[in-house]
Amino acid sequence: MSMKALAKKLIAVMKDCGYVMKKGENKYHGYTYATSADVLEKVNAAFVQYRIASAAVPELLRLDDITTAKGNIEKLATVRMDIQLTDIESGETIQITGLGSGQDAGDKAVMKAQTAAIKYAYLLSFAISTGDDPEADCHTDEITAALEEKTGHRHQMQSVLNRTRQPTRQPVCSVCGTVITEKVLQFSKDKYGRALCMDCQRSAKGIA
Rank of each mutant, 00 (worst) to 15 (best):
A45E: 15
K70M: 10
T130G: 02
V160I: 09
G30T: 05
S54M: 11
Q114Y: 04
S101A: 14
A105F: 09
E92T: 00
I96G: 02
A46I: 03
F126M: 02
I88C: 01
T140P: 03
D133L: 11
I143T: 08
N44A: 08
T130I: 07
H153D: 15
L123I: 13
A145C: 11
E142I: 08
A105Q: 10
E135A: 14
R80N: 11
D64Y: 11
D104N: 12
L63V: 02
Q95C: 05
S129T: 08
I96Y: 05
D104C: 04
L40H: 11
D64H: 09
V79E: 04
L61N: 05
L99V: 00
S54K: 11
I143Q: 10
I52Q: 07
A69T: 14
L85D: 05
Q156K: 12
G131R: 07
E25P: 03
T151W: 14
A34P: 06
H139R: 10
V110R: 01
E142G: 03
S54L: 01
V48Y: 08
Q103C: 15
S36F: 05
R154G: 02
K23F: 15
R163V: 07
L85P: 01
K119L: 05
H29C: 06
D107E: 10
S36R: 11
K27D: 14
T144N: 10
L147A: 07
Y122I: 01
Y31L: 02
G152M: 03
I143S: 05
G24F: 13
L124G: 08
S54Q: 14
N72D: 15
T151N: 10
L123D: 04
D104V: 01
L76N: 13
V39S: 02
L124N: 13
T164A: 05
G71K: 04
A77V: 04
A116Q: 15
Y31W: 06
E41Y: 12
I128K: 00
Y120A: 01
Y50I: 05
A53Q: 13
A113F: 09
Y28F: 14
T97C: 08
S54G: 09
M111S: 05
K119E: 10
D132T: 14
N72A: 07
E142D: 14
D64I: 08
K27G: 10
A34C: 06
D64Q: 06
G98N: 03
Q84V: 13
K23E: 15
G24V: 06
S159E: 13
K119H: 04
T68M: 15
I128E: 02
I94W: 00
I52G: 04
N162C: 08
Q156W: 12
T115F: 06
I96W: 09
E59Y: 13
Q114S: 03
T32S: 14
A121S: 01
G98C: 04
G106F: 06
Y31P: 11
R62Y: 15
T68D: 14
T78K: 10
